[in-house]
Amino acid sequence: MKEVVKIKEESIFPKKSKIEQFSSQMKRSIAIAKKNLRIYYNKGPVVIQGFLFPGIFFFAMTIGREILPIYIISGLMAMVLFLSATSIGPITFPWETRQKTLERLITCPISIKTIILGDVWASFLFGSIISIVPLILGLLIFSFWSSLNLVIIIVGILVSSFSFSCISIILSVPPSDTPASTMILTVIIKFPLIFISPLFMPIESVPSAMISPLTYFIDIINFGLSGNSAFGSFGILIDFGILLLFGFGFLFLSFKLHGKTLQKRFRG
């Protein structure tokens, strides 16, 4: 009898190994990312933060100053990557809470971690793609071909985009259903990070730069363009290490904090 019950249960709930479970949740997180990219790339906050702000900041920070071409490329790339990779993540949770689509999502066989990862992938792809534009423009205009290490730059973009995306997800932890209020928090945190970062200048000239994750991306780009790192011979490893630390640190923190605030989104 027990065997019959067991067989029945297995036919209803087929057993899956941990690896199968992980892989199916990863696939589902990619489905969420696709959905996010389809829906959010043209939303107001994303357009403002992902496209307009980098342009405005670029002109505000560079016009009238004599800046070495290498710092123009790394500074612009860092700003574009940071602002675009952090533009989708903070708005998806409040937007979907308001639209009542989060409740539909949460009733699917996916965990909150899967939803967060989906948001990270969307931000990651958005940031990575957008930041290619200033790289291409910079290379065409300033011709860094001789010392160019494209592999380092591409890996740097991918790692940094992941790291910045993870940082952005934490901004949507407060269980708000108003994207505008999340945007205020976003601006309060993101803008100071930009201002303390060594954008369009040597890293050594900004003492507070070490606390900003942008610094390590700038150093990777500088290294990819010139072969020199501000942190010595192992500088590039330090850059990647710190960016990954930032990324995974914020990702796990997001898992924890979103898990805690999720229920508050369904009180209404």
Binding site: K27, R28, R104
Partner: peptide, 26 residues
């Protein structure tokens, strides 16, 4: 399930809404 307090994705088509859910169910 059809929750009362839920919605379809207004920025996706009917077909995209369905295939998204299909993907989320594997």
């Amino acid at each position: 399930n059809v929750p009362e307090m839920a919605n379809v994705y207004p920025d996706l088509t009917g077909m995209q809404n369905l295939t998204l859910i299909g993907e989320l169910y594997g």
